[in-house]
Every structure is written in structure tokens, then in C-alpha cells.
Computed example of a mutant assay.
Amino acid sequence: MLPEDDHNHQYKNVVSPENYNSDLLGDVLVIHLLRDPLSLFNISCYLEDIYDLGVFQMDHLTIDKRRFDNFKQSVFKLSGLFSSISALVFEIAIASNQYWRLWKFDDKVVQFVSFGLWEAYYPQEFNVSGTLIKTLVHTPIDSTWKLSPEFQYARILLIWAILMKPVVLIFSAMAFKISCMKNPFVEMQIYCYKVSALFLCVSSLFSFVSVSWNHAVDFYGQTTIDFPPDFPVKKEALRSKHFTAVFPAGVLTATMSLFGVIMFLSEIRSLNLQRQLKAKCAYKILSRKTPTQGGKVHSEKHRK
């Protein structure tokens, strides 16, 4: 037999949340019955402690599950915002890329020329004190160049695509901020998500058109880019054209933007369902109150 103090100490350790063990707890209860078969009151107290322990553990599991669900909802709501930021970074990188087109020339001085949206780049060797130094020379693409329409529109479309992104970021951040309020204004959330989805969709379309049109005309069409008279190589020396990373990067950017649009539309759909559900609940509450109020008015009239 265990002493009373040792047994109670062992029971407290078994029932504590840190050392809970169902098998050991069963052995402790059997020992209690053997020591005192009539101590049903003590056993009932022990069972109440076990129940309280289970409720304690269930409460902790419920709190953890709620936190995890809230975290998932926050990540889902911010997916559109994150994809918009990523698309903006990619568009800025594409606009500043110096390899929109890469041409190879049959020339001894200049073999390769790469074209950005605003500058042309070509490697050239210089003789400095008897030593040949190869440097990358860049010259601005200005009015002295004869540019093709797709090249001019690529500039305009990409600039507009970049300028639209801050509008998307502002409205999507406002919608997320409203959702974090205690009593969110659903109509305002839906309006913010609609504006974000519209601007992001147009922006992705502009990005895709700018890179795809440039790629199609460069490889499958007839380009009309003519060099200025002082350019070190002539267009007639063009030998071949090379594929660059601008086109796949533009397609990836448009895809990320469309993913953000899908996230915004799913949020709009979810908010519309919540609004309809609230309207139904409000209608049911009013329908329940109306007959009661009518009955009260009728009874008051009857008393008068």
C-alpha cells in the first residue's frame, strides 16, 4: 500500500497536463479501490478532475485550430497583394532590361548589339597605350532612330502597366485593413477588390501584349528599326537574331498578375456569400419579431 501523501502526490502528477498518462491513471484508481472500496466519493472527484483535464486540453486544441485557421485566411487574403508586388518587381526589371532584342552582325568592329527600350548596347574594343580593352558601349535610342510601332507601343504599354500597380496595391491593402476590423464594411471591401482586380487585369494584358508583340515581330515579322548614320554598324550586316529572356519573363509576370486577379475575384465571391447570409439571417430575425409585435398591438387594442 502507498502512503496517503505519496499516493495523492502521484495522482496529482498523473492528472497534471504535463504528465498525463491514461494507463498510469487507471492503476492509481485500482489502488484506491483496493485500499478503500467505499471511497466512491474520492473516485468521483478524481473523475471530475479527469473531465476538467480533457476540457482543458480540448480548449487548447480549439484555440490552436482557430489561430491556424486565421493564419490561413490571412495568407489567402494577402495572396493577391503579394502577387501584385511580385508582378511590379518583374515589370520594373523587364523595363530596365537591355536584352529586348539581341542581334548578331557580320562585322569586325561590332559583332553583337542588344536593344533595350531606351538604349542600345554593343561591346567594342579600344586600343589604349598598345593594350586592347573591351568595353560595353551604350547609346540612347532617340529621335535619330527609326523605330518600329511594336517597339514604341512596348514602351507605352509597359509604363502604363507599372503605373497601374500602385493603384492595385493601395486598394488591396485597404480591403485587407477593412477585413481586420471588428465590424468590417463588406460593401467597401468588395469595391476595393473590384478596383484591384480591374487594374491588375488590364496591367497584365499590357505586359503580355508588349513582350509578345515585340517577340513576334522580331522573329517572325519584318522589323523596321533603322540605325542612325553615326552608328558603328550597318543594318545590312545583320546575320542572325537571338532569343532573350524578356518574353518568358513577361509571360511569367502576366501569369502572376492573373493569379492575383483570381484571388481578388474569389474574395469578392466569398464576401458576396457572407453578405447574402447576413441578409437572410436579418430577414429571419425580422420575420420572427413582426408577428410578436403584431400580437402585442392586437392585444393592447383588445384591452382598450
Rank of each mutant, 00 (worst) to 15 (best):
K134I: 12
K134M: 08
T135V: 13
L136Q: 01
L136S: 03
V137E: 08
V137L: 04
H138R: 06
H138K: 10
H138V: 00
T139G: 00
P140N: 01
P140V: 05
I141A: 07
I141C: 02
D142M: 01
D142A: 02
S143T: 14
S143K: 12
S143C: 02
T144P: 05
T144Y: 12
W145Q: 00
W145V: 00
W145K: 00
K146H: 13
K146I: 13
K146W: 11
K146T: 13
L147S: 01
S148Q: 12
S148D: 13
S148T: 14
S148W: 11
P149Q: 04
E150V: 11
E150I: 07
E150Y: 11
E150A: 10
F151Y: 09
Q152W: 12
Q152V: 14
Y153F: 14
Y153W: 13
R155C: 06
R155L: 04
R155N: 12
L158Y: 06
L158F: 04
I159A: 11
I159G: 10
I159V: 12
I159N: 11
I162S: 04
I162D: 15
I162K: 01
I162M: 14
I162H: 09
L163F: 10
L163W: 07
M164Y: 15
K165A: 09
K165H: 15
K165G: 04
K165Q: 15
K165M: 15
P166T: 03
P166S: 03
V167S: 09
V167I: 15
V167P: 08
V168H: 07
V168F: 06
L169F: 07
L169M: 15
I170C: 04
I170G: 10
I170K: 05
F171R: 09
F171C: 00
F171G: 03
